[in-house]
Design a protein around this nucleic acid. Structure first.
Lengths: 328, 328
DNA sequence: CTGAAAGCGCTTACAG
DNA sequence: CTGAAAGCGCTTACAG
């Protein structure tokens, strides 16, 4: 029974009386290489048969996919939607589809697997969002002939394509903002020591130093809500008047825990968040933040991986809400 | 220069002195069909050449991908991470990869495009998460020979595979919970009239009726934070003592707006949320919720689309936090 | 255990 | 404008 088989151009050729070459041309819209009558006939037959192109075959012969692979992990903070929107939008303008490969939450195995999957599918380019690559990942990527670009992560070298906020500058601005409001004892909380984390640590330290202030011990964490909750006590012990939270989620955790301790924010503690997602609006008080332009980070990274001119660093902006008080 | 070309099994065959058939067998691990010496030799050459399999070619000849396509849209509430985790986990247990196709935010065009993309790539199955299909989408899906399953959406018929919470029951439970705590004037807020929405509306109405209570006008919205903010005034005008929010985001919006109006939650208004994501912990007070088991919804949907036994409806649970007061 | 050959569903010079 | 043929990189009966 033919019924059960997916129809191919061969079926269309047989039924229409043309060769598969001609069928391929009209289906592929190679305008000018077929007559209108032929087109009409073939299109009609294709529709009758319920024909649907087999992209796998097309990709094989064309040796490329016209799809960008986006590898992303489940970060505790939910900025990914904006990044994805930016990527999708720009990719579609450039005629590229995008498939998302999920790398778990900082799961090195999954991450590696995702890279390999992308490599094996002859994608146009690979985007790695918020992925901290290990040596192996990097070696794999470098050995491939496929362009790749890190998104929202700067590896510290121009040799590797990347689009992100300038994390040093971002933390510097956050710190300076607090200093400008009279704070002198300021802490940085919930951060790790990978690329993004250490760049932010540097920005924080530089700003403190530039203002002749001594930096507090940095409180390590993993950017999560739980980190924030857990670290509040240490923040309190530090005796600081203001904190910079490594992410909106850390800020939210800090806030909840502080309130449970009976603290009033921002009177007893000012919180400056990093990211500026909708989380900042949900909390009470709303969180003042250094806001990243994730959409633009996404769209520019597509430009970059497609070999078009693109910005390296996307400017951030400070969004004043209600979690920072002026220190007398 | 050979250097620039990606090596193929033909290159390995040439360099190792074996035929491409044998190369294919050892690379494909067809144990028993080659000698150990051969294996060692071929693997060595493959490594030297930096060989990487071309999955596109493999898929073409095998006529299937061993990947599940997950089509997902950017819902205002961020439960997707949990669904994805569940899907990824179960899929990998079954030897399936998963690619995610992003359908924007209720964007019918993108949604349709995503379905077509999946159809053209001979995936093992298609999962549609929180997607309300239109006629066209459904026709497309039905016409294909690829199994598909809706995730977190029940179309109201057993003919179409789906795994979700029982949304009627979910809303019924939420309503009954409030009634049990003395509330009689209860509203349902931020919901739409599609499948999930109307099922919840029915559950709400049924519970009210079963308790001889009159249902308030349902306040329509799109499950977003903004909906919650915008609808608070109407909730207030209704004079209810408790609301069921269509999602965590709606609940958060309601809460923020209420607090801005000077209301104290839950004293002045009890809020019962639907979803139970981390958002519920972030707000002050924390939101009591009907909590869905998104992870399980995800993993069971994989079973279902792979033709394995699976549950249709995943039980929900009520998580008491601090946004519901007992009404005297 | 191994190889020659056919074939997966397309595209694209080449020739007419 | 159209068709016959080669080929994309693999897998897998078939024969030995």
């Amino acid at each position: 029974m033919e019924v059960v088989m997916k129809p191919t151009i061969k079926d269309i050729a047989a039924k229409s009386g043309f060769s598969i070459a001609t069928v391929s041309r009209v289906l592929g819209n190679k305008t000018g290489s077929y007559s209108e009558k032929t087109q009409i006939k073939i299109l009609k037959v294709a529709k009758e048969l319920g024909y649907r192109k087999n992209s796998v075959a097309v990709d094989l012969v064309k040796k490329r996919s016209d799809v960008i692979a986006l590898i992303i992990n489940a970060t505790p903070t939910n900025f990914s939607t904006q990044i994805i929107d930016g990527i999708q939008q720009r990719a579609s303008e450039l005629g590229q589809g995008v498939i998302i490969l999920y790398a778990g939450n900082r799961d090195n195995g999954l991450q590696h697997k995702a890279i390999i999957t992308a490599l094996e599918r002859s994608v146009t380019g690979i985007l790695l969002a918020a992925i901290e690559p290990d040596e192996q990942d990097l070696a794999l990527l470098k050995a491939s002939r496929i362009p790749y670009c890190f998104v929202s992560l700067y590896l510290g070298t121009r040799d590797i394509l990347a689009v992100s906020s300038d994390n040093r500058d971002l933390a510097y601005q956050a710190t300076q903002y607090l200093i400008d409001r009279g704070h002198t004892r300021i802490s940085l909380v919930g951060i790790d020591g990978y690329h993004t984390g250490s760049q932010r640590q540097a920005g924080y330290r530089d700003a403190m130093a530039a203002n002749q202030l001594t930096a507090a011990d940095i409180l390590s964490g993993d950017y999560s809500y739980e980190s924030g909750v857990k670290l509040l006590q240490q923040v309190h012990d530090q005796g600081v008047t203001a904190v910079i939270a490594a992410s909106d989620m850390v800020a939210a955790g800090l806030l909840t825990a502080a309130q449970q301790q009976g603290l009033t924010i921002p009177r007893d503690l000012s919180i400056m968040s990093i990211d500026g997602t909708i989380i900042c609006q949900i909390t009470t008080p709303a969180l003042t933040s250094v806001t990243q332009d994730f959409y633009r980070i996404g769209s520019q990274s597509v430009n970059k991986v497609m070999g078009q001119p693109a910005e390296d660093f996307i400017p951030v902006v400070i969004t004043e809400r209600a979690s920072v008080a002026v220190q007398k």
